[in-house]
Amino acid sequence: MQNNNWKKWKRKYTGMFYLTPWIIGFLAFQLYPLVMSFLYSFTDFTMLNDYKFVGLQNYIKIFTNDRLFLKSMKATFMYVAIALPLKMIISLFIAGLLNQKLKGISIFKVVYYLPSIFGGSVAITILWRFIFMKTGLLNTLIGALFSGYKAFDWIGSPKTSLPVISLLQVWQFGSSMVLFLAGLKQVPDSLYEAADIDGANAVQKYFRITLPMLSPIILFNLVMQMIQLFQDFTAAFVITGGGALKETYLYGLMLYENGFRYFKMGYASAQSWVLFVIIILFTFAIFRLSDGLVHYED
């Protein structure tokens, strides 16, 4: 009897043992910072001082007396609005191409995934400079195609700096591409065969079979990428430093500057909770809007 209990207990909890590294990591590096940042958001914590409780003062200041908050919000929304659709469309398109049965297709998969690994490294900053500076690749190319084109610096100009850093994110479409590719492989051939018999053409098959079958993954990617873009920091930090008239002053960069440059950690914590609420609202909105658009098999 006792032996039986032990077996039951073991079956129940063995899995938990395997999860311990993750759970410990989660507690130490996610839950603890989460709770602490919430507490800090009501203090004047600078990382080094004996902080004191300031009530809602940080939150009030964000909405009433922060000259950069709106500017940064605007930049962040623009950034998400440019990068999110482009990234989704490109990753879906490339995943479609990579879904072909061709020799050596895995090489292409690796190549398309590479930008996601390089991310916002210093090397990429230099690459971006060479492409977008006044005497860079892009201007040379446009100049060769259109005579009379007046070259300008894409990174330094307030009108183009945000699209330029958005492209860095778009370029890193690897992870959503992999998910789309996995999704495409799951679509049963029988559906396409049935459509063939009914005389459907390629476009009809794509919009009537492929996209509906992929819709749960599209929703997943949309939500995950949106969250990531709202929090993004690297592109603005390494390429523009938020510059060209603060047009690229992404929310993540503002948080970093307040927290780690001006050491207003309490204030930065409050700002991060505001961002958290914004992300929750958008996620909720996407889920509501997706009702009826997403096709679940079960």
Partner: peptide, 17 residues
């Protein structure tokens, strides 16, 4: 130089070509 041309090298003045 106009500011927009040096922005990409802001803080790394010696790296500007």
């Amino acid at each position: 130089q106009p500011l927009e041309e040096t922005m990409a090298y802001n803080g790394n003045i010696d790296q500007n070509p």
